[in-house]
């Protein structure tokens, strides 16, 4: 019995060490980026790379207030991501309700169409959009950018919301209907409060994707609309070796999504798995 217990303990310890080592593969690059962001530029180019050094916050000060300030692009990203999210939710929630709960003419082909639009490779959209927005003089404008962002946020949001709408019980809607509530009242007062959690998850996903988008932003934006992702890329193209400042700026730029990611970790995993678990049951 004692031997058995020892073997178990040993196995657990080995297991912890192995998994811990694997964890390092993902943790180390992130920690390293943070370490580099605390170095002076001279320290960054020391060889071998130094681990003990005098940390400085000056790169962060620079990233926010200095000559490399990314505050403007943070603001741009906030505007674009927020506008995209609001519009997407406003369009996706009613559509998802109809798909999930109502008799909709041509429901299957329309659902398939929505799913198919989600699979269009972005490069197949950025080329025509450049030509179209150029003709409309909408390149480097906020409305142009938000329109383009709807292409990836809307189909995804509709499908995610459909899966949440399918989960709510029918009884409440029936009761409301018997109370002679109008259909719109039912949607607003009965259905939407029940899918608040689903809406929150959808908001998180749409916001994250919009914040992180790069391909459309780099080609269809410009000096007016320059989200943080593009600012980061330009920074490296111009200042090849200022890694400490790059790391600091990039960590600041990623701070919002990292906070959202950690805070909503459970909801995100649930959102990721909605497709995986329920996908099999979908008609």
């Amino acid at each position: 019995m004692n031997v058995y217990r020892h073997a178990r303990l040993l196995r657990t310890i080995v297991l912890m060490i192995v998994t811990g080592a694997l964890l390092l593969v993902w943790v180390l690059p992130l920690i390293w980026a943070f370490v580099v962001s605390l170095k002076s530029e001279r320290e960054v180019l020391a060889y071998p790379p130094s681990v003990v050094f005098e940390p400085t916050w000056s790169n962060y000060v620079d990233a926010l207030f200095g000559s490399f300030s990314i505050v403007d692009s943070l603001l741009t990203s906030t505007i674009v991501a927020t506008a995209t999210t609001v519009l997407t939710i406003a369009l996706a929630v009613p559509a998802a309700y109809a798909f999930a709960r109502l008799r909709l003419p041509a429901k299957r082909p329309l659902g398939f169409y929505t799913l198919a639009t989600q699979m269009v490779p972005p490069v197949g959209l950025v080329i025509p959009y450049f030509l179209i927005l150029n003709r409309l003089s909408w390149l480097d404008t906020y409305h142009g950018m938000v329109i383009v962002y709807l292409t990836f946020s809307l189909p995804f949001a509709i499908w995610l919301m459909v899966s949440y709408m399918e989960d709510i019980p029918w009884e409440m809607e029936e009761a409301a209907f018997l109370d002679r509530a109008s259909r719109l009242q039912t949607l607003w007062h009965i259905v939407i409060p029940q899918v608040r959690g689903g809406i929150a998850v959808t908001v998180i996903f749409v916001f994250l994707n919009a914040w992180n988008e790069f391909l459309f932003a780099v080609q269809l934006g410009g000096n007016t609309v320059r989200p943080v992702t593009v600012a980061m890329y330009n920074f490296v193209s111009v200042e090849q070796t200022l890694w400490a400042k790059l790391s600091a700026a990039a960590l600041v730029a990623m701070l919002p999504v990292v906070i959202i990611g950690i805070a909503a970790q459970r909801q995100i995993v649930k959102g990721l798995t909605v497709g995986a678990v329920k996908g099999g049951a979908r008609k």
Partner: peptide
């Protein structure tokens, strides 16, 4: 959750440099 929420362009830049 961390790598998933990072912008791919930033991940690419991190790997290219540091």
């Amino acid at each position: 959750i961390l790598p998933i929420v990072l912008a791919p362009v930033v991940v690419g830049l991190f790997w290219r440099t540091v």
